[in-house]
């Protein structure tokens, strides 16, 4: 398991920097909402990251909106995407849910890759950061750190409120005994979809910041499957709850700073192993 987590930690290009740590923290809290609190291990969580990133970029490029307006729109769009597809994928649980979310992310990536109007002929959507037409002045590294920090703080505060709420109680029952939940008066499907959608909002917001940071966007950048694995690994390593995902994010960040690059084939094997291991642990719980 530890090796698999280490492989997941290789996911992002610039390991070890502060923004990476904070990004991991937001993503871990995102996954925590659906995988940790509700017990639905999503392996396609990157879909929200990608949807939020693209929507943020399009709002800036096509509509000329400020980044600080575009990013919340991206988060909202990702949440709505979660509402739209949640009821469908959340009908299955365990390994089936893992596969359903993987397929969801792959299909969304494929659709965006072949969408003719999305980017220029190069297939790369670029957020203009110089010249007269830049919607928002691009913040420096410290600026991005501050935005990620705010997101991480909001995510963690949100999770801590949620676990004490009625929805938090409902998710705890759904995680432990979904068949019992209805008998206690819990409307299972709305609760699950709400958790999925909220988790989508967090990942979508993170994707929006990442998009502005990277500026040159393609589906390969915003839908990197290893990002999904980072989210899973952080919560698996750190534990669910309010602070567990933060511990996991730190652990992943430390590993990603120390471990060199592996062959892509080896990564794929490790990713697959992680999926199987997480699902087996979930099922056996």
């Amino acid at each position: 398991m530890a090796v698999a987590i280490g492989a997941g930690a290789l996911a992002l290009a610039r390991p070890g920097s502060l923004d990476t740590l904070l990004l991991y923290a937001v993503l871990a809290q995102s996954w925590n909402l659906i995988g940790g609190l509700a017990g639905y291990a999503s392996f396609g969580q990157v879909v929200f990251f990608g949807v939020g990133g693209y929507l943020t970029a399009l709002a800036m490029v096509r509509l000329g909106l400020s980044f600080y307006l575009a990013m919340p729109l991206g988060g909202l769009g990702a949440a709505l995407f979660g509402l739209a597809v949640g009821d469908l994928v959340l009908r299955v649980r365990g390994l089936y849910f893992a596969v359903a979310t993987l397929v969801l992310a792959g299909a969304t990536k494929a659709v965006l890759s072949s969408w003719p109007g999305l980017a220029g002929p190069s297939g790369v959507l670029t957020i203009t950061t110089v010249g007269l037409h830049q919607p928002t002045a691009r913040p420096g590294p410290l600026g991005f750190d501050a935005v990620y920090l705010a997101l991480a703080a909001v995510s963690t505060a949100g999770v801590s409120v949620l676990v004490r709420s009625r929805l938090g109680d409902s998710l705890a029952v759904i995680r432990d005994d979904e068949d019992l939940a209805g008998a206690l008066g819990i409307a299972v499907r709305p609760a699950k979809v709400a958790a999925f959608s909220l988790s989508g909002a967090l990942a979508g917001l993170a994707g929006g910041v990442y998009a502005f940071q990277v500026t040159a966007l393609s589906p390969a950048v915003l839908f990197a499957p290893l990002l999904s694995v980072v989210m899973v690994a952080a919560v698996v390593a750190g534990g669910a709850g309010v602070l567990g995902p933060l511990r996991g994010a730190v652990l992943l960040w430390l590993l990603s700073a120390g471990v060199g690059s592996l062959a892509p084939e080896l990564r794929d094997v490790l990713v697959a192993s992680l999926i199987v291991a997480v699902v087996l642990v979930e099922e056996g719980r």
Partner: peptide, 20 residues
Amino acid sequence: PRWSLARSGITRTFQVPRPL
């Protein structure tokens, strides 16, 4: 649906106890 029955005021125990 189950949850609606419970919220309407019909609750039950289970023959095989199923605590959390």
